[in-house]
């Protein structure tokens, strides 16, 4: 628990300082970008005033340590400061609006992929050496290495443009209004299929490969040998002896890979213009929206660390050997 808080704090601080230490003034950059893009001319004094005003609003006029303190204080209030994208809406509003979509898609896809992968991996190890194992294993090795966003590109091309089965962008049909109706839910499902598949198709195979290796090691363990000597039914051996033990490292693995999955996932969102945190980040980056960018980075780290903490806390439930250390 304590280490969680420490890491969280350290990472936030690191993020804060690394962003602040980037050369250049974010406000000025933003204003310059805007003037360039919209061909807007400003007289030099007005320019300076605008910058000053913005700076005050963003709290960038104070020295860096005061900024840091303000940052922490505001963070505790969950206030990230005004955004540029939807000025003057504060960044956290934008993020909170996008968050449910991201959590929904990412969460569901990750869990589904993990379950499929672990179950399949154990089965593959059980039928090790068979033609099915050989074939699926080779496929899995190849597929698991493809980056999520490339798979997303393939899927979009294939099933949204060439063979228009699925909609290529958005989370739901623009003609609908978010409500708890069948048509809305159906639209959400349809729109979410391709992004989810981009993740699942690759992630599941990845889990399959790693689970298979773990399960093969387990099959070589003494207690497996003993279980066979006991003449236990095969299904029991598979479920209670192999699978249960293979779960353990895979759960920890899930926690550790969340950051990696998130990395790839943001891009998938962008490719599908899915209104989640990933697309928000891309837009913010394009516009150099300081606070939103910072907000997304912090949020991602927070989410991953919290997920890790949760899994750490829940782990003793499945591995009785860990009960003592809690």
């Amino acid at each position: 628990m304590v280490s969680y808080a420490i890491v969280l704090f350290i990472s936030f601080t690191v993020v804060f300082f690394s962003l602040r230490l980037i050369p250049g003034d974010p406000v000025m950059r933003f204003v310059d970008l805007m003037t360039r893009r919209y061909s807007y001319e400003m007289a030099p004094e007005i320019y300076k005033n605008v910058i000053e005003e913005y700076k005050k609003m963003f709290g960038l006029d104070k020295d860096i340590f005061t900024q840091y303190l303000c940052f922490l204080r505001e963070l505790a209030k969950l206030n990230l400061g005004p955004s540029f994208l939807n000025f003057p809406a504060p960044a956290q509003v934008l993020i909170l609006r996008a968050l449910p979509w991201s959590i929904g898609l990412l969460g569901i896809a990750t869990v589904i992929a993990w379950i499929i992968g672990v179950v399949a991996g154990t089965l593959l190890a059980w039928f090790r050496g068979s033609k099915l194992d050989h074939f699926l294993f080779t496929v899995a090795i190849c597929m698991s290495q493809v980056p999520y966003y490339l798979m997303a590109l393939f899927l979009v091309m294939l099933f949204a443009y060439i063979i228009p089965l699925f909609p290529p962008r958005g989370a739901y049909s623009p003609t609908l209004v978010p409500e708890l109706s069948i048509s809305f839910i159906w639209s959400v499902l349809r729109h979410g299929t391709l992004p989810a598949l981009s993740l699942i198709l690759i992630s599941a195979f990845g889990w399959m490969v790693s689970t298979r290796s773990v399960a093969i090691t387990i099959v070589g363990e003494d207690y497996l040998r003993f279980a066979t000597a006991k003449g236990l039914k095969k299904r029991r051996i598979h479920n209670r002896y192999v699978f249960r033990n293979a779960l353990l490292p895979q759960v920890t693995g899930l926690a550790m890979s969340l950051g990696f999955i998130m990395n790839g996932f943001y891009l998938v969102e962008w490719i599908f213009s899915y209104p989640g945190v990933g697309t928000l980040l891309s837009l913010a980056l394009g516009l150099l929206d300081y606070n939103t960018i910072q907000g997304v980075i912090l949020l991602s780290m927070f989410a991953v660390l919290t997920a890790n903490l949760l899994i750490d806390l829940l782990y003793p439930l499945i591995d009785p050997r860990c009960l003592y250390e809690v």
Binding site: M256, L258, I297, V304
Partner: peptide
């Protein structure tokens, strides 16, 4: 390794 570093990288 654990943290999602891509957003930070992108920002930089």
């Amino acid at each position: 390794l654990i943290l999602p570093t891509l957003p930070l990288l992108m920002a930089i």
